[in-house]
């Protein structure tokens, strides 16, 4: 136990402050203000992989690491679409996941918004449309926010959420 406590104290707080990463803090504070106003302090996101290569998932995980710690701005990831305000959809929509995505969409209470994360979800990426893939998420459900790049780094995801909240 002593070793754990020593390590905890030695590590300190790595969560990025203004002077360490100006963008992160700025986006974060703005997100927090808008989340407080529009979502009563907490924006719940349900991540849905409908055909991703797992690259985007790694970066979503990073949002929860102590550097970004997105929960401090009131944004958190939930286990069920029924608890969600927004869906964060990754990957092209594989045809084997098409119905599953529609059901997740229906299970999410309105008002809801849909974020397509990564090139695959935004425009089909390297996979496109085929016998096995419906292509971009927009081909199956309406998309409100698009976050391109493969995969978008954590900061780009935060930036996109912020921009949406502003509009």
């Amino acid at each position: 136990m002593l070793k754990i406590l020593t390590k905890v104290i030695k590590t300190g707080v790595v969560t990025e402050k203004f002077e360490r990463n100006a963008d992160l803090e700025r986006f974060g504070i703005e997100i927090k203000t808008l989340v407080d106003k529009q979502f009563a302090g907490s924006l719940s996101i349900r991540a849905v992989d409908v055909g991703s290569c797992n690259g985007c998932e790694l970066e979503i995980h990073a949002l929860n690491n102590p550097y970004y710690n997105i929960e401090r701005f009131g944004v958190h990831f939930v286990a069920s679409p029924r608890h969600a305000d927004a869906l964060l959809v990754t990957g092209v929509v594989s045809r084997h996941m098409e119905t599953a995505l529609l059901r997740v969409y229906e299970a999410t209470p309105a008002p809801k918004f849909i974020i397509a994360m990564g090139d695959c979800a935004v425009n089909g990426g390297e996979f496109g449309v085929s016998y096995a893939s419906c292509g971009a998420v927009g081909n199956v459900i309406n998309v409100d926010v698009a976050i391109p790049r493969c995969p978008p780094p954590p900061l780009a995801v935060m930036q996109a959420i912020l921009q949406f909240l502003k509009t």
Binding site: V50, V92, H96, M97, A100, F127, A132
Partner: peptide, 11 residues
């Protein structure tokens, strides 16, 4: 499994 079958071999 097979839910994320994206037809990689074919495309």
């Amino acid at each position: 499994l097979g839910y994320v079958h994206k037809g990689i071999e074919k495309i």
